[in-house]
């Protein structure tokens, strides 16, 4: 019996290695989130849809609201505290992440970055380990910011489920394409489910936020229809 790829699996379901062995006899199987090897069997830990990618990668696609840090993820955090040389940043995980003041572009011991408590930062996870405090940085390995850093000049931050955030980050995302055709706005999405939006005025911002939240359970045709309606409504409100 082959593995139920694309079907629902629940915690406690088990597969044998033979079941998961892909047809081209690839030697190594890579297990992603939600799967674990136990007693020569593969066990499901989370409810979700079993996914497969060539050559032999398996993972569970599940609906999350709580973020669990993973190395290399781009997240949006809120600076909560300043302790000596580091900032404590809330990234939505079980523990606050630490952010060194030296991990900003162009910052030195003398030239400190301008970060205050309450600021939001777009950053990357450098250390993510279940036994250690997560650490985030606002520079890449070349020491450049590459789009990361403190997000300034207003805008609006809100939370969504992690699935929706991943959907928005998909280059083929219908919602952002549709909204982009009708509005002028800036958006940044963290995989921790936080989304920051800034539009020309408040009416547009509210409309954008609502359309992002509502889009989670809509298909592409419904999203297109919704964008059309929202842009009409916004235009009418702006005239009033």
């Amino acid at each position: 019996m082959a593995a139920p790829i694309g079907r629902i699996v629940l915690p406690g379901d088990t597969f044998s290695f033979e079941q998961l062995q892909p047809p081209d006899e690839h030697k190594k199987i890579l297990l992603g989130p939600g799967l674990r090897e136990e007693k020569a069997e593969i066990k499901v830990l989370r409810p979700g849809i079993l996914r497969f990618r060539k050559p032999a990668v398996y993972w569970i696609d599940c609906h999350h609201k709580r973020y669990i840090p993973a190395k290399g993820d781009s997240v949006i955090g809120i600076v909560n505290q300043k302790v000596g040389d580091i900032f404590r940043v809330d990234i939505g995980s079980s523990e606050q992440a630490s952010l060194s003041y030296l991990s900003f572009e162009g910052s030195t011991k003398r030239n400190r970055p301008d970060v205050k408590v309450g600021d939001i930062v777009y950053s990357k996870l450098l250390v993510a380990n279940k036994d250690m405090e997560p650490e985030i940085v606002c520079i890449d390995s070349y020491g450049r910011s590459s789009g990361m850093g403190v997000i300034r000049n207003g805008g609006f931050l809100f939370h969504t489920s992690l699935n929706l955030a991943r959907k928005l980050l998909n280059p083929q995302c219908t919602l952002l394409k549709c909204l982009g055709n009708r509005f002028q706005f800036e958006i940044s999405v963290g995989v921790n489910g936080r989304v920051w939006v800034k539009a020309g005025n408040d009416v547009q911002t509210i409309a954008l936020v609502n359309s992002v939240i509502v889009s989670e359970f809509k298909d592409n045709d419904q999203i297109k229809e919704m964008c059309k309606r929202i842009s009409k409504a916004v235009v009418r409100m702006e005239i009033d």
């Binding site: 629940l10 915690p11 406690g12 939600g34 066990k43 830990l45 989370r46 409810p47 979700g48 599940c62 609906h63 999350h64 609201k65 709580r66």
Partner: peptide, 11 residues
């Protein structure tokens, strides 16, 4: 727990 997708050994 299933709704929150907390890791579980079994249900």
């Amino acid at each position: 727990l299933l709704d929150a997708a907390v890791s579980m050994n079994f249900m």
